[in-house]
Design a protein around this nucleic acid. Sequence first.
DNA 1: TTCCAGATCTTA
DNA 2: AAGATCTGGAAC
Length: 196
Amino acid sequence: MLGPSFFARPPLVCARDLIGLDLVWGPCHGRIVETEAYSAIGDEACHTFSRKSTRDFLKRHTPGTAYVYLNYGMHWLFNVLVKGGGGDQDGFVLFRALEPTAGLARMRRRRGNATDRALCAGPGRLTQALGIDERVHGRDLCGSGTHGIVESKSPKPAVLADLRIGITRSAELPWRFLAADSPFVSVRATARAQKL
DNA sequence: TTCCAGATCTTA
DNA sequence: AAGATCTGGAAC
């Protein structure tokens, strides 16, 4: 299980390094194939830009804490707090897509029997498949043996950096990270995606 | 492939 | 009162 030191690094580094690792959520497991970085400094799309409550959350919690919120009134979105040091390297990583590897029957039940490819392809679908909601907000992802992130046996995939999805502010930043060639991402890489 | 409703929270 | 890190279904 990854410890707090993994999350004591800047959002861009964490978001990139999470690609290819395994998210373990009770009996449900999945390989992380898509993330986005959000920075507390210089990023108007980060909740810290407009929300005092999020700035307070960042101050009061340790790296590796889950940050979960409701979007568009109906989708839970699952992030992890990262603190790269000094306050100017802090932020969040949003989990956007998984390649499901275990507990697929359970995920299908929660997802209305979606196809395997659509089970966790998208931040709202991912939380629905895993049963993540407000109860997970503030939970330490480094503190249990059953809910967190582990190294994967399979080799690290090639990683691409592309524009983030669905945002209007700071939309030009290439802070979405994807496993190249994975069919389990929510939106495939565009022509301007950069190899890392 | 494109469009749009749906439902709730936070902030201004 | 406005806008939001989205999804599924319907219309083309």
